[in-house]
Amino acid sequence: MRRHREKHRINRTGWLRAAVLGANDGILSTASLVVGVGASGADRHAILIAGVAGLVAGAFSMAAGEYVSVSSQADLEAADLAQEHAELADDPHGEEAELAAIHHARGLTWETARQVARELTAHDPLAAHARDELGITDSGAARPVQAAVASAASFSVGAAVPVALAIVSSHALVLPVVTIGVLVTLCILGAVSAAAGGASQVRGALRVLLWGALAMAATALIGHLAGTTV
């Protein structure tokens, strides 16, 4: 008998969002910093220092932000699980009835829902309530350290692009090389992430291209105005 296999993209949501957000933020924020400093008339050394500083500061900022936010999520999950554990100890029959009501609301008959709740409760009541009542699963549980490391790594990879472009460019060509190189990279990133999510690659590329161009144009203007007033 041939096994029926389905491949869905929804299980990519967590890592895809984190990876795209980190890389996109790294590319765009660091490139904008490089372009802004360059537009002010700063020398090549200052531009490189700004780029490297942006990479390091941004990576640590992303790691800290992800760690704090995901830790808060983990604390909430732990508190809800502790509450559910206490409720199961105080009123196991009421909790089983609550579990049956959840499955009935999802389309099962009352007879089937009660049987499902009874069997799940006999197997692992806390896991059943965590999944069906609270929406907490092992695969989706908050992992602060993992989130922090992944965000810092993806940001660093993205930020390395404009820094590398600035390193290999002459001072006279830093701005056009970084700008064009980053916009091309953003288009590729947008297309790849859209393809991974099953969306239009053209739309994915254009939306990051638009925001990238706006961000660098704004910082270039600020750098230019700052440079002319010094």
Score class of each variant (00 low, 15 high):
residue 117 A to D: 04
residue 120 L to T: 06
residue 121 T to H: 15
residue 121 T to M: 15
residue 122 A to Y: 02
residue 124 D to H: 11
residue 125 P to I: 11
residue 125 P to T: 12
residue 126 L to Y: 09
residue 128 A to W: 12
residue 128 A to F: 13
residue 128 A to G: 15
residue 128 A to N: 14
residue 129 H to I: 08
residue 130 A to M: 04
residue 130 A to H: 03
residue 130 A to V: 04
residue 132 D to L: 08
residue 132 D to P: 04
residue 132 D to A: 12
residue 134 L to M: 12
residue 134 L to G: 12
residue 134 L to Y: 14
residue 135 G to C: 06
residue 135 G to A: 05
residue 135 G to Y: 07
residue 136 I to Q: 09
residue 138 D to M: 04
residue 138 D to C: 00
residue 138 D to E: 15
residue 140 G to T: 14
residue 141 A to L: 09
residue 142 A to C: 10
residue 142 A to K: 10
residue 143 R to S: 12
residue 143 R to C: 09
residue 144 P to I: 03
residue 145 V to P: 03
residue 145 V to R: 09
residue 146 Q to K: 14
residue 146 Q to P: 02
residue 148 A to H: 10
residue 150 A to W: 13
residue 150 A to K: 14
residue 150 A to H: 13
residue 151 S to R: 01
residue 151 S to F: 07
residue 151 S to N: 10
residue 152 A to E: 02
residue 152 A to W: 08
residue 153 A to H: 03
residue 153 A to Y: 07
residue 155 F to P: 04
residue 156 S to K: 09
residue 159 A to W: 01
residue 160 A to Q: 04
residue 161 V to M: 07
residue 161 V to L: 14
residue 161 V to I: 13
residue 161 V to D: 05
residue 161 V to Q: 01
residue 162 P to W: 02
residue 163 V to D: 09
residue 164 A to Q: 04
residue 164 A to L: 13
residue 164 A to N: 00
residue 164 A to D: 01
residue 166 A to H: 01
residue 167 I to A: 02
residue 167 I to M: 02
residue 167 I to R: 01
residue 167 I to Q: 00
residue 168 V to M: 10
residue 170 S to H: 12
residue 170 S to T: 05
residue 170 S to L: 09
residue 170 S to F: 08
residue 171 H to T: 08
residue 171 H to N: 05
residue 172 A to K: 03
residue 172 A to P: 00
residue 173 L to C: 00
residue 173 L to T: 13
residue 174 V to A: 00
residue 175 L to D: 01
residue 176 P to Y: 01
residue 176 P to K: 03
residue 176 P to R: 00
residue 177 V to A: 05
residue 179 T to I: 02
residue 179 T to A: 02
residue 180 I to C: 02
residue 180 I to Q: 00
residue 180 I to F: 02
residue 180 I to A: 10
residue 181 G to R: 05
residue 182 V to P: 01
residue 182 V to W: 00
residue 184 V to A: 13
residue 185 T to V: 06
residue 185 T to H: 11
residue 186 L to Q: 08
residue 186 L to G: 06
residue 190 G to H: 08
residue 190 G to Q: 11
residue 190 G to T: 04
residue 193 S to E: 07
residue 193 S to T: 14
residue 193 S to W: 10
residue 195 A to V: 11
residue 195 A to Q: 11
residue 195 A to Y: 14
residue 196 A to Q: 11
residue 196 A to M: 13
residue 196 A to L: 15
residue 196 A to S: 07
residue 199 A to T: 12
residue 201 Q to L: 13
residue 201 Q to D: 01
residue 201 Q to N: 07
residue 203 R to M: 07
residue 203 R to D: 08
residue 204 G to A: 08
residue 205 A to V: 05
residue 206 L to N: 06
residue 206 L to T: 12
residue 208 V to R: 06
residue 208 V to G: 03
residue 209 L to N: 09
residue 211 W to F: 13
residue 212 G to E: 10
residue 212 G to A: 02
residue 213 A to P: 11
residue 214 L to W: 07
